[in-house]
Design a protein around this nucleic acid. Structure first.
Length: 286
DNA sequence: TGCCCCCTGCAG
DNA sequence: CTGCAGGGGGCA
């Protein structure tokens, strides 16, 4: 579920607690969820946590680091013996349940600097997500498959416009394409297009330079707002203190079928575009 | 470039 | 029961 702002939020949270802890045990209950050799990360200490695209990177003091992709329903939940529980991901009952839960796919035991114990749970209902143990070089190769992050200064108006010029796909699909820009998912794509007043079915190479500039600025704006608000928590499951962002309170169109548009007299409608549910307003998006 | 697929669970 | 879910890889 998480897009760039949600993953960024999770990264910030984990960065407050993981550095300095050593991985003392790894338990993989679903083979599909962990790629690589678990022994390569045993007894390694976390240096820091970073993010690229929608991937979380846990830097370790060895040859290998861990990459975590939450995909649609992944969660990373940290729990320490002093009762602290935090992390992020799909807001489900797993937050409040006894851990490991039935959706726990990978389970790390950690020894903190003060020698007390902590745990890191990777829960993933649909088993689309993964954790990979890779060398620093392999990680560079993995990341090179992704275009620059949307909030990076490498994504310039010139860059974006040239990408739009080179394809006849619908603009919504281009915005979601990791080979064009990384980090934008369905919520922020819908909202960014709405803020820019660009119809999601517009053919990418039909956008003028001005429209392209406005769309890029709008995407950067909603992403920045998402990061600022700690991401979105759309499905109103009980969130407890596990993960509850604030973006859902300012969301423009996503999930708002039938509701009034915030920038014109229109009504938000929903249509499937490129296999993804897409929310937009015919009144102001052209 | 578009379609199907990976999977589980929940709402309609 | 069917359809749908904040992702994205593989395939023709």
């Amino acid at each position: 579920m998480p897009e760039l702002p949600e993953v960024e939020t999770i990264k910030v949270r984990l960065n407050k607690v993981l550095p300095g802890s050593t991985i003392s045990d790894v338990s993989v209950s679903k083979e599909k969820s962990f790629h690589g050799n678990t022994t390569a990360i045993l007894n390694k200490t976390v240096n820091k946590v970073s993010r690229r695209a929608k991937i979380i990177r846990i830097h370790l003091d060895g040859a290998h680091d861990l990459l975590v992709h939450l995909k649609m329903t992944g969660q990373l939940i940290y729990h320490s013996d002093d009762g602290l529980r935090l992390g992020g991901g799909h807001p489900t009952a797993d937050w409040v349940s006894q851990l490991p839960s039935k959706h726990t796919r990978v389970f790390f035991k950690l020894i903190k600097e003060d020698q007390t114990e902590a745990q890191l749970f990777f829960n993933d209902m649909r088993i689309f997500g993964w954790i990979k143990s890779l060398t620093k070089e392999e990680i560079l190769a993995e990341f090179s498959k992704y275009a620059p992050d949307i909030n990076s200064n490498k994504v310039t108006p010139e860059y974006f416009f040239s990408k739009l010029q080179s394809t006849a796909r619908k603009i919504k699909q281009v915005v979601l394409d990791n080979a064009v820009i990384a980090g934008v998912g369905n919520i922020y794509a819908c909202d960014g297009l709405h803020l820019a007043r660009v119809h999601p079915e517009r053919i990418a190479n039909s956008l003028s330079r001005d429209e392209s500039d406005i769309l890029l600025a709008s995407l950067k704006e909603v992403i920045a707002q998402g990061i600022d608000l700690g991401g979105a928590t759309i499905d109103n499951y009980r969130n407890v203190d596990g993960f509850s962002g604030g973006y859902q309170s300012v969301v423009r169109v996503y999930g708002k079928e039938g509701q009034a548009c915030v920038q014109c007299p229109g009504i938000i409608q929903k249509k499937k575009i490129g296999g993804r549910g897409t929310y937009f307003c015919e009144g102001c998006q052209h």
